[in-house]
Design a protein around this nucleic acid. Structure first.
Lengths: 214, 214
DNA sequence: GTCTATAGCATGATAGAC
DNA sequence: GTCTATCATGCTATAGAC
């Protein structure tokens, strides 16, 4: 086994770190290549542009991430009770909290990166997200519709997005960092996952509205 | 009534628009002053720096925003049932959906701006949010603790943050723009508010966990 | 594939005339 | 208070030697 990472790999690793920690727009190719110990021009040689580099960074992680999500969902649907909202959401959130092989100990980093991508300028974000998440999201919304037959399909999709928002807020680091003054909160990954699951599942199971109030 | 806005006011108005629509880092002072029809140097004359301008933009809106929130909460606590989780959350979310005088028809803009601020680089954000939101957030967490006496205080604060995340995802525009493919969703302000309230309230009322699972 | 050097442009900030 | 002109610095991207 070679311990020698290629220039390409070193760029990808450092890009992942800096994009996640400092932000994407805030990370210059100069700082990136300096940290990685490679030449400035090598980014353009290997990837073509900063934007294409970002896409490569995402691509590398999104694949196993989404595969794990779908594997969990398949397993659930093959099991006895596919209508368990908690279990569906847990399958969706899980890869960010429990590492698969290959992802290493970079969960915190990946969560931040995902949050960063969602905070990108509209044009880039739309494109990136559609490419890397839309299929999986559709599968999960379909599963949730099956589990919540009395709730209008539109509302299932809307509530799924609200759950996504809660997830992203956790991913952005607001559980380690932000504290509502006077009420500090701290928890480990598994505990946070379960908090997120029970919150979002309860939200999804809320009674259907009867139309706009007032 | 004078229709002549001062240079200072024109800068504030345009900054609010462009920061919200294009992003803060993405908005140059050159583009800003060009749009406002004022001189580039006037930003530094009136505000001192771009960062100080952002703070002034927030300051102007945060005050009535937070006052409305607290007024609603006071009213609720004076009423018969201060333990209504839905009502507490509605009081918190309301100013973003129902305009007060002075805020005009800029609700969509303000929601986006709030989302942008939360997506800022850590240092700036911490400072800004602590200054403009932490007191109000504390009051609402306290109210929620009163309404949910069986839930540990830490968990109330954590769930309030999750609710905040859902709110911010809406504010970022993900209800008008993003669509889970195949499940389009559209709704007006009041309807979105009620969706958010019922989702978040159900999440907060979810049964307490018995400790980390597994 | 990797390097140096630089083009080409944008930015926030400021000095100083009016 | 408002203007022009400019400083100093940053950036992505690329040309071309090795």
């Amino acid at each position: 086994m070679s311990t020698t990472r290629t220039t390409r790999e070193r760029i990808l690793d450092v890009a992942e770190e800096l994009f996640a920690e400092r932000g994407i727009g805030e990370t210059s190719l100069r700082a990136l290549t300096r940290t990685a110990g490679v030449n400035l021009a090598s980014v353009h040689y290997h990837f073509g542009s900063k934007e294409a580099l970002l896409d490569a960074v995402i691509e590398r992680r999104a694949r196993p991430f989404n595969e794990l999500r779908l594997k969990q969902l398949d397993r659930l649907e093959a099991s006895g009770n596919p209508a368990d909202v908690d279990a569906i959401l847990r399958a969706f959130f899980l890869p960010a909290f429990r590492s698969q092989e290959g992802l290493g100990t970079r969960r915190t980093l990946l969560r931040r990166l995902i949050a960063r991508i969602h905070a990108q300028p509209a044009e880039q974000r739309e494109e990136l997200l559609r490419r890397h998440t839309s299929e999986v999201n559709s599968r999960f919304v379909t599963a949730l519709r099956g589990a919540l037959p009395t709730l209008p399909g539109d509302e299932v999709a809307d509530r799924f997005r609200l759950a996504l928002g809660a997830m992203l807020h956790v991913f952005a680091g607001n559980f380690e960092l932000d504290e509502v003054p006077g009420y500090p909160g701290r928890a480990l990954d598994e505990a946070i996952l379960e908090q997120l699951v029970s919150f979002a599942a309860a939200g999804l199971r809320a009674p259907a509205r009867r139309g706009p109030v007032r």
